[in-house]
Computed example of a mutant assay.
Amino acid sequence: MNNRVTELLGIRYPIIQGGMQWVGRAELAAAVSNAGGLGTLGALTQPTPEALGLEIERCRALTDKPFGVNVTMLPTVNPPPYARIFEVIIEQGVRIVETAGNVPEQVFQQLRDAGIVILHKCTSVRHALAAEKRGVHVVSIDGFECAGHPGEEDVPGLVLIPAAVSALSVPVVASGGIADGRGMAAALALGAEGVNMGTRFVATQEAPVHAKVKQALLDARENDTRLIMRTLRNSSRVLLNPVSEEVLKLEGRSGGASFEVLRPLVNGQRGRAALESGDITNGVIWAGMVAGLIDDIPSCAELIERMMAQCRDRLAAAAAQVGA
């Protein structure tokens, strides 16, 4: 494929792996990039900016193709050293950065001055317009179906994608609700110039998570995710398990629950432990509705080639139905 996204990123196919915390490591990012997509490292997966630098070097040893680094800037009890993280990214010569959250304008300027292509993830058109005004090169628009943080406006991709395409001049990447070539074909038909997938890439051979986590995604249906922390206006879509059920139970009490009450349940290190140990009952596991569309655990190369073939078939079939 050849469009603005593939040209900006220097990739063969406009398929981007989301920079998921604890999952976006070198082995997965390199596998996606080697397969023709864009692999992405999760900056906050690493304990220090210096460790991120080593992970970037490790990824370069596994692929000579472009890859990116995700930096998500959300309110936390102990904010990461963002300034140093961006310094390391620039020092390492990374050419693509995916940002999300409340990113200061000066950070965008710093990245642009370094010649870095910026993909910014948004959950609403108004935030996408603000990001475009600040000079991002690509907007990744994240629909209500997505894993992680879908925002608070609850607009699904079928509406959000074309709304963003109509409003923006920069290319739009569709994120959330996409697991195969059918979803990709739909996104392209709606005007997007690429897709971003997280949950689907967790269920691949190269994803650095326990086999039981991948099996849980295979077993899940489309209604086996839950939105937690809605009462705190920090909505998060996660897999249905005893931890997410307990969070919802606490949120449903009269008066709700403070973050301090929920914190032991939603703690990131606890979620990391669940991903690594395979104990899927003892931590929050991010997952999108597309879990209901996952029925195998292919390699990244198999997944991407299959997606492209299916996407082409679906677009051709749709065109045949419409006729000349």
Score class of each variant (00 low, 15 high):
residue 41 L to H: 10
residue 281 T to D: 15
residue 117 V to D: 00
residue 48 T to S: 13
residue 23 V to F: 04
residue 136 V to K: 00
residue 137 H to I: 03
residue 271 G to H: 00
residue 263 R to H: 14
residue 160 L to W: 06
residue 101 G to F: 04
residue 92 Q to N: 13
residue 229 M to D: 09
residue 152 E to H: 11
residue 230 R to N: 11
residue 136 V to C: 00
residue 151 G to D: 04
residue 39 G to N: 09
residue 218 L to E: 07
residue 214 K to C: 07
residue 62 L to S: 07
residue 12 R to F: 10
residue 214 K to M: 08
residue 267 N to G: 05
residue 213 V to A: 02
residue 56 I to N: 01
residue 157 G to I: 01
residue 137 H to T: 06
residue 69 V to W: 04
residue 195 V to I: 15
residue 144 F to Y: 15
residue 72 T to L: 14
residue 23 V to T: 07
residue 63 T to I: 11
residue 2 N to Q: 14
residue 70 N to W: 09
residue 16 I to C: 04
residue 106 Q to F: 11
residue 225 T to F: 08
residue 22 W to T: 08
residue 307 M to E: 11
residue 122 C to W: 01
residue 110 Q to L: 11
residue 282 N to L: 06
residue 274 A to M: 03
residue 276 E to K: 13
residue 87 E to R: 15
residue 290 V to R: 00
residue 214 K to L: 09
residue 185 A to S: 10
residue 293 L to R: 09
residue 150 P to G: 02
residue 193 E to D: 09
residue 2 N to T: 14
residue 321 Q to P: 07
residue 96 I to T: 06
residue 266 V to N: 01
residue 258 S to N: 08
residue 283 G to Y: 01
residue 53 G to S: 03
residue 296 D to R: 15
residue 103 V to L: 00
residue 240 L to G: 06
residue 48 T to W: 07
residue 44 L to M: 14
residue 296 D to T: 15
residue 188 L to C: 01
residue 149 H to Q: 13
residue 81 P to T: 08
residue 323 G to P: 07
residue 271 G to Q: 01
residue 265 L to F: 05
residue 194 G to M: 09
residue 104 P to I: 03
residue 255 G to L: 09
residue 196 N to I: 11
residue 65 K to W: 04
residue 50 E to S: 08
residue 160 L to M: 10
residue 150 P to T: 03
residue 188 L to Q: 00
residue 88 V to R: 05
residue 254 S to V: 12
residue 88 V to H: 07
residue 102 N to Y: 11
residue 136 V to E: 00
residue 315 L to Q: 12
residue 59 C to H: 03
residue 192 A to I: 05
residue 56 I to F: 02
residue 181 G to A: 03
residue 116 I to L: 07
residue 155 V to P: 02
residue 115 G to R: 02
residue 305 E to N: 15
residue 291 A to V: 15
residue 199 T to E: 05
residue 132 E to W: 01
residue 314 R to A: 14
residue 295 D to W: 12
residue 76 T to M: 15
residue 271 G to K: 00
residue 318 A to L: 13
residue 304 I to E: 08
residue 39 G to R: 05
residue 76 T to D: 10
residue 258 S to R: 09
residue 301 A to P: 07
residue 44 L to D: 03
residue 254 S to C: 09
residue 193 E to K: 07
residue 31 A to V: 07
residue 153 E to Q: 13
residue 21 Q to V: 15
residue 276 E to T: 06
residue 209 V to G: 00
residue 105 E to A: 13
residue 150 P to E: 02
residue 62 L to E: 08
residue 7 E to M: 08
residue 315 L to R: 11
residue 77 V to N: 11
residue 86 F to R: 04
residue 242 P to Y: 03
residue 254 S to I: 13
residue 260 E to T: 12
residue 11 I to G: 09
residue 236 S to V: 10
residue 17 Q to L: 11
residue 216 A to E: 03
residue 172 V to T: 07
residue 216 A to F: 02
residue 296 D to C: 14
residue 237 R to W: 05
residue 296 D to P: 10
residue 233 R to E: 12
residue 234 N to R: 14
residue 125 V to H: 03
residue 49 P to A: 08
residue 292 G to H: 06
residue 184 M to Y: 06
residue 245 E to M: 10
residue 218 L to F: 08
residue 214 K to I: 05
residue 147 A to Y: 04
residue 112 R to N: 07
residue 310 Q to W: 09
residue 191 G to K: 04
residue 173 V to K: 00
residue 292 G to M: 06
residue 153 E to F: 12
residue 97 V to I: 12
residue 172 V to P: 06
residue 8 L to W: 02
